[in-house]
């Protein structure tokens, strides 16, 4: 009854996430109140000045004339019906704004995860395979360098070299706004635009995963079960593929799950450099505009994303290592 147990497990885990997400919402709501200034002054500031009647009217419309706990209760109440509220600054429902930005974010996150995980694991494997040779040193030193380089700098350099000088890729954006391709041309166009941001965001994580994979491989190779397997008469290649590799993957997968949160954060910089229309930029803009409804919506969505990814990681665990039980 393995399927039933996985279903029950997922359901139980999902229920457990509800208090986590509620906590995220409440803490963020209260934290945001500590920031000086409010949306009304920002809107009036952008306008280059406004009458006091106008500003007072704005505050009343935003519900800011209500006591704090009333505002919080209203927000929580709306949340129960998946009503994330209305962004007065952007004159649109928060949910619509978030959904518009979700797929570019998922696209960039997905390709980054794929590229950085696969290349990171491969490089880690190779380094472990060639341990203590010049090839291992080359991989390790490169990984440290990539890990230490600021993302925005990598991004700008890639733009300068591959877009401005060589003209291989577009400088920024998600698609060609002069041509407006359709169908498969559009898919190809978006893929073309996706290359530089993905590479930029990947190098950091790639370096991390490569280091981790190398260390993990070396550690597993020295464990007793490897000696047992060898005594059983298995060949080195079989041991590496069937036993060491699977076990060595566990810490990397764990790290990838934990890193999804920071992947969202790291993409703020990459999205800015490449004008990628993701959630990170939206969060950044709404913070400086004190657009709390929108910001809380983004936190809410990010919390859900992180929880879901970690659930996936736990399920992958079971597949990789049947000894781990669903409880």
């Amino acid at each position: 009854m393995k399927n039933a147990s996985i279903g029950g497990y997922i359901l139980r885990r999902l229920l457990q996430t509800i208090p986590v997400i509620l906590g995220v919402v409440i803490v963020n709501f209260l934290l945001l109140q500590l920031a000086p200034g409010d949306l009304a002054t920002v809107i009036a500031g952008e306008a280059g000045g406004a009458t006091p009647e106008y500003i007072a009217e704005l505050r009343a419309r935003f519900g800011q004339d209500q006591p704090l706990f009333v505002q919080l209760l209203n927000y929580m109440g709306n949340l129960l019906t998946f009503d994330l509220g209305y962004s007065f600054r952007q004159s649109a429902p928060v949910l619509d704004l978030l959904l518009d930005r979700l797929w570019p974010t998922l696209l960039l996150m997905g390709t980054t995860l794929m590229v950085s995980l696969s290349l990171g694991i491969l490089l880690g494997l190779l380094a472990a395979f060639w341990v203590k040779t010049w090839k291992d040193h080359l991989i390790s030193v490169t990984a440290v360098l990539l890990y230490a380089t600021p993302l925005f700098w990598v991004g700008l350099m890639l733009v300068l070299v591959f877009a401005v000088k060589l003209d291989w890729f577009p400088t920024s954006g998600m698609e060609n706004v002069v041509a407006f391709h359709e169908g498969w041309d559009r898919v190809w166009d978006i893929a073309h635009h996706l290359v530089l941001p993905t590479v930029t965001l990947s190098v950091f994580y790639l370096a991390l995963y490569a280091r981790l994979m190398r260390a993990s491989m070396l550690e597993q190779r020295g464990l007793d079960y490897v000696t047992t397997a060898r005594a059983k008469g298995l060949k080195d290649a079989q041991i590496t593929r069937r036993h060491v590799f699977r076990n060595a993957l566990l810490p990397v997968v764990t790290m990838a799950g934990v890193q999804t949160g920071s992947l969202l954060g790291g993409s703020v910089v990459v999205e800015a450099v490449f004008a990628w229309p993701g959630l990170g930029q939206l969060a950044y803009q709404s913070l400086f505009a004190r657009d709390y409804n929108l910001l809380l919506g983004i936190f809410f969505l990010s919390a859900i994303l992180v929880v879901v990814v970690n659930l996936l990681v736990d399920i992958i665990y079971v597949i990789l290592d049947p000894r781990i039980r669903l409880r």
Binding site: F152, A163, F274, A275
Partner: peptide, 20 residues
């Protein structure tokens, strides 16, 4: 007319330089 939004100042310069 297409109005583009690019948050990073250096990228804006590169985009103009490239004629995009």
């Amino acid at each position: 007319i297409v109005v583009r939004f690019i948050a990073d100042a250096s990228t804006r310069t590169a985009v103009l330089e490239q004629g995009e």
